[in-house]
């Protein structure tokens, strides 16, 4: 009897192993576990056994029965999986969820603000339509400076304020410098101001409206070395580990000393190519905050020093390796075939 049971088990498992479809398994199930199946036939003979034999054979019987059941089940799901593979074509595309697009300027602004927030800068936003005072006067621009005349800056038709002057569309985010000093009151100041700016110009690298980001750091002992450190950090974060920066002498009314910031060309890696000047690309202006500007912000220039920089968001984005946008006006044409690529 024991031997018979063992044989049934081996036979059943072998059949289950070679089954190819659920019909096979069902047939096997009926043959062994069915009402008139092999196991039940054996069970019918149990009553002729002695009690001690009964117990032992009973255990074996249960063991065989559950082994066959488990094998049937496992094999069943394997076959099911096999069928899945056959029925679904994984090379067909899934049902898409239609999604829209962020504008490249938003990507650039997010990346810039994240980089600076990581080193403790506070993001702010200041007026785009601004008093001449904050756009120029407080920034040490002389009364007759060319930037203050009709050919370079937009003016609004409005009566000038006796103290604040005319209303202009701010040509740079530097208008936020003195506003931030007045807001914070006492250094340390670490500001990143990102906003729209306006200038009377339009060509492949200029649109009348564009975005700038302005960094301003004021504290005791802030030096040119700190400005270089901040620029290097940003250049490596935004443009990549292999890019580097340099400062060249320049001139701005509201910084002294003033610098033009260059970054190494990402195309030729600083060797010099068609797209760069001897391996360098101009990023924008920067400098140490002019003492007159600190004074306008009610900060004592004998105690505190600072640096500032203001660069074009679009310009930086276009200079990032691999963006391949060579005309800034594309960003503002809002052609859906352009926007869909982002």
């Amino acid at each position: 009897m024991q031997e018979k049971l063992q044989n049934i088990k081996n036979e059943a498992l072998a059949q289950i192993l070679s089954a190819t479809g659920p019909e096979d398994l069902e047939r096997i199930r009926i043959q062994y576990l069915g009402k008139n199946g092999d196991l039940n036939e054996i069970a019918k003979t149990f009553k002729s056994l002695k009690p001690e034999e009964k117990a032992e054979i009973g255990l074996l019987f249960n063991d065989v029965k559950s082994a066959i059941s488990i094998a049937l089940e496992t094999s069943g799901s394997k076959i099911q999986n096999l069928k899945l593979k056959i029925e679904y074509d994984s090379t067909l595309p899934g049902t898409p969820v239609p999604i829209g697009h962020l504008h490249p300027v938003t990507y650039a602004i997010n990346e810039i603000s994240t980089a600076f927030e990581k080193i403790g800068f506070t993001r702010v936003r200041y007026p785009e339509v601004e008093w001449d005072y904050f756009a120029f006067g407080a920034l040490n621009f002389p009364e007759n400076h060319p930037a203050r005349d009709d050919w370079e800056t937009f003016f609004v038709e409005a009566d000038p304020d006796p103290e604040m002057g005319k209303i202009v569309l701010t040509p740079h985010t530097s208008n936020g410098q003195v506003r931030e000093m007045l807001r914070v009151g006492k250094p340390p100041v670490r500001m990143i101001n990102i906003a729209k700016c306006y200038r009377r110009q339009s060509d492949v690298s200029h649109t009348a409206m564009f975005h700038q980001f302005e960094g301003l750091v004021i504290d005791e002992g802030i030096s040119i070395a700190n400005l270089r450190g901040t620029i290097e950090y940003f250049v490596k974060t935004f443009f990549g580990e292999n890019r580097t920066s340099r400062l060249r002498p320049y001139h701005f009314q509201f910084t002294e000393p003033s610098f033009e910031v260059d970054i190494s060309c990402g195309i030729c890696n600083g060797k010099g190519c068609k797209l760069c000047k001897e391996g360098w690309l101009e990023l924008g202006g920067s400098g140490m905050v002019h003492p007159n500007v600190l004074k306008a912000g009610k900060i004592d220039p004998r105690k505190y020093t600072g640096f500032a920089f203001g660069w074009g968001v679009e310009r930086c984005y276009m200079m990032k390796s691999g963006t391949r946008i060579d005309d800034i006006r594309l960003l503002y044409d809002n052609d859906i075939r352009f926007l869909n690529q982002f």
Binding site: P188, I222, L247
Partner: peptide, 14 residues
């Protein structure tokens, strides 16, 4: 300026 070593600020945060 190329001879000035870059150093990030170490002072307190606003």
């Amino acid at each position: 300026y190329h001879n000035i070593q870059p150093v990030l600020m170490s002072g307190p945060l606003p």
